[in-house]
Design a protein around this nucleic acid. Structure first.
Lengths: 264, 264
DNA sequence: CGGTGTGAAAACCTTCACAGCG
DNA sequence: CGCTGTGAAGGTTTTCACACCG
């Protein structure tokens, strides 16, 4: 997942649980699809299936928004699309800037899912002079020297960072200084921002690592014991030597030393 | 954020909470950075800051893995890197196939974060014949007709779907039929898979929508008055309310019971 | 001392199950 | 009757705070 969040000051009444907020886009997507097929109403059961959650959860989620359904019938698709859009703030137009136009930035620039949800790519920004002026997904790339100007002129409050990790923090700082208060970070690094600025992160490799964890477990399960090169070693007892000091000689798994992970 | 099916068999021993598993990659990343700077040990406080979580949470997380720290000192960086890598299953090599080589697929193919974490891009697959043979990030694209063969020959168990939503389910079905048991889905659609197959999804526009929700709230807040983000509301009228009538009837929505205009 | 490891409390989220309304 | 809306129960995650150890 990808969460990111800056502490909520414990706020007031009108609180929609964060977990619910995170699912609203899912419901919206499912509803939009139904709307396109001109389906007039849906039951919580059907909509839940389409969104990939269970119906009790969906009903509970909707109950935080208000009573928008009709007992014995279900929910009016169009009406719900509107209510959720409004709740998410998608009834207004959100100009967004994407910084870092490499492969990923280009993919984001051309991603249809943005435009269709109230987001408008206001500008593509890159530090490489060779990119300046080059159109990507139909939008000319601008140089990062103009970052502040662009943000101010367009009243941009949401920025997407798709730069290498090394420069992400400084790009972030500039965005924040220029007035951006929400950041979607694709760089594999932790950004620090002042209070009042929201950061959400998406790390592609983290998702894969979580899958690997479960995958590994499946493999170990069906064999009871193990068979791979990296055997199960210990499992039950927490044993394992905590104090494995001395940089060069930490004794680890069966494979002598040095884990198999080493970035470039 | 999205877990796949496969719920805890309950009976299985060694349960590391899902929330903890999701953070292990974060710790690993922070530790890898420290390791590169040859830092020998870290305290929970320091590591937590580097990973963007609080220290109590980090210590609790590590307690599920075992007692790998030294009281009064902290954790041995190298040792912890190894332990977490092993727990995540990253000490082995995971061949991965990426299906759908558009902008996003190309970005993924070239993403350094994969290779550095035990993942190996075994193949890039696309349905467009014009792409076949073309090298992307140094790897030649193969045609989807050969999908099953590729998966079998390489013993691939993890697949990444970066195709348009319309074909995602069928690609998924083929991957699963060929033996893939973990899928990372970038297509904005819900995939249905048999039990035993894990799916995680990453939807770029969902993250932005969540940011918009908070952004909207901020805007409404500084305007002083309460009354939610949609204060004025009124807004024309149409839309199709389910059945908002009857005095004292259902009125819970933040905006009384008067519907509002449907956005385009 | 300084910092880990961990029970216990608190907060949060999900699921159950059913009252009640259309 | 069918389905929503929701208290209450159950589960998970986070936070607290402190015993305990190097």
């Amino acid at each position: 997942m990808a969460t990111g969040r800056t502490h909520r000051p414990a706020t007031r009444s009108r609180g929609i649980p964060e977990a619910t907020v995170a699912r609203l886009p899912l419901y919206l997507r499912a509803l939009t699809a139904l709307s396109e097929r001109s389906v007039p109403t849906v039951s919580s059961e059907e909509l839940a299936a389409a969104a990939g959650v269970n119906s009790a959860k969906l009903r509970k989620d909707f109950s935080y928004l208000g009573s928008y359904g009709t007992r014995g019938v279900g929910y009016d698709v169009e009406y719900l699309v509107y209510q959720i859009s409004r709740e998410l703030g998608l009834t207004q137009d959100w100009p967004v800037v994407i910084v870092g136009i490499g492969n990923l930035g280009a993919a984001l620039a051309g991603y249809g899912g943005f435009a269709s949800r109230g987001f408008r790519v206001a500008a593509l920004i890159d530090a490489d002079p060779a990119m300046t002026g080059k159109p990507v997904a139909g939008i000319p790339v601008q140089h990062s020297d103009d970052l502040e100007k662009i943000i101010n002129e367009d009243g941009v409050s949401i920025g997407v960072i798709a730069t290498p990790a090394g420069v992400a923090q400084q790009v972030c700082d500039r965005l924040v200084a220029a007035g951006v208060t929400s950041i979607l970070n694709f760089a594999p690094t932790v950004l620090s921002v002042p209070d009042g600025v929201d950061v959400r992160k998406v790390d592609l490799s983290i998702e894969l690592q979580i899958l690997a964890f479960h995958e590994q477990r499946k493999a170990g399960e069906e064999a009871g014991a193990e068979s791979g090169p990296d055997s199960g070693t210990d499992t039950g007892a927490p044993a394992a030597p905590p104090a494995a000091r001395t940089a060069g000689g930490s004794r680890k798994g069966p494979d002598g030393d040095v884990p198999a992970v080493m970035p470039a």
